[in-house]
Design a protein around this nucleic acid. Sequence first.
DNA 1: TTACGTATGTTTGTCGTACAAACCGGCAGT
DNA 2: ACTGCCGGTTTGTACGACAAACATACGTAA
Lengths: 233, 233
Amino acid sequence: MNKPLHGLGPVRQEAAPLRRKITSALRRAIETGALAPGSRLVEKDLCAELDVSRTSLRESLRELEAEGLVTNGSKGLVVTAISPQEARNIYAVRGVLEGLLVEQFARQADGDAMARLDVAVADLASAYEEAVIERIIAAKAELYEVLCAGADNFIVLELLSRLNTRINRLRFASLSQPLRAKASIAEIHALADALKRRDAAEARRIALGHIDAAAAAALGAVPKNTASEEGTP
Amino acid sequence: MNKPLHGLGPVRQEAAPLRRKITSALRRAIETGALAPGSRLVEKDLCAELDVSRTSLRESLRELEAEGLVTNGSKGLVVTAISPQEARNIYAVRGVLEGLLVEQFARQADGDAMARLDVAVADLASAYEEAVIERIIAAKAELYEVLCAGADNFIVLELLSRLNTRINRLRFASLSQPLRAKASIAEIHALADALKRRDAAEARRIALGHIDAAAAAALGAVPKNTASEEGTP
DNA sequence: TTACGTATGTTTGTCGTACAAACCGGCAGT
DNA sequence: ACTGCCGGTTTGTACGACAAACATACGTAA
């Protein structure tokens, strides 16, 4: 058996089959609202628009269907519309998932994960200040990635990503509020502090409060627990 | 506008396009282990086996891929194998999700939901006593359905179903332990009691303990909190 | 004019076929 | 023993076809 003489990793295989590009394009169109909720997805039209064959397009549609982004109603495929109740539930689920995530991170993260956390948090803070929504969302995704890596829990990463694609349009509303951004930065820093201290309970509390506030901002409701100050109850 | 003279619901539309049957067949084969984790999925073979066209088969594969049941490795599609760590994480996620679910149920369920809960619990208990695994899994799915309906949270239902399909093969191990079955029945009844009393905190505690024990049974580990008696701490 | 039934067009679901590119394994030649 | 070539297999993509479901518009009869 040959030893690996040079630390050469496998060549960057950027296969990117066409169907993935199609899926991404459609997903983005749905997230940004270019394809409005409820609008019909007619295969022939999409084929013409994207200039791909129906075969590949349909495979992409099946992926999106499994992701829940499009729904197979009685009148063909439509972009799924989420009800306020569903949105609330998604935020509730996000809450418990992120709560679990930060708890695990606080307990298990190693030094490397902590270092990456610092970078991700700083990046997210600067993104909030720039107030470019795409940047914020990307930075937030990166933060999730770091948290899940530190917690060694990629199941949660998958679920959170999935959920977030569904409510991304709502997030536009909440993320574009400058006041909310200021508060978010503070919350994220408090979270990072708690994680560094490995204070799992406190981290969980902050995460829940953060989601709660985000939900309120997105849904225009009052937060369940008026989490003005994150003091220990 | 005509009034609905008779309470006729829409005719049972059992369209069941072929691709759904294919997806179900493959999913079941994976869940039961007929298609072992790690085994390759060769399109031509599956087409011959199922006697369907490659077009439809591929659409089904894309669905399963999005569900995470099959993985597109460098050597084509394979049935995804879950590592012990992933399994632990799935149980952890199930824990927080079911915790959330029963809390919501305790708060929001109406009388009808409570009645359906009784039926589902009774059915599950009898399934445990019969000790037929398929029956148990079906009854448990029904219980989830009832809980999610009462909590008005179908997002959780979707996520739990998804997660359970991934660990169904592990569940076979835990569900076939008669001792564990006895304990499960007791836990389920305790849970139902707490829900009836609308004791959200207690319900959550029991749910977490239940998942913890199930994880231990499936993974052969000791429960994190040796939840021998569910006394209030 | 309204109601009904029919002709017509559109959309989806499924199939077969085709072909390029990637991949794999073996065989021959050095 | 290593190399390089060759043929078979598998995937990714495209196209064309057709039946069935569905929607729409039209024309006819009451």
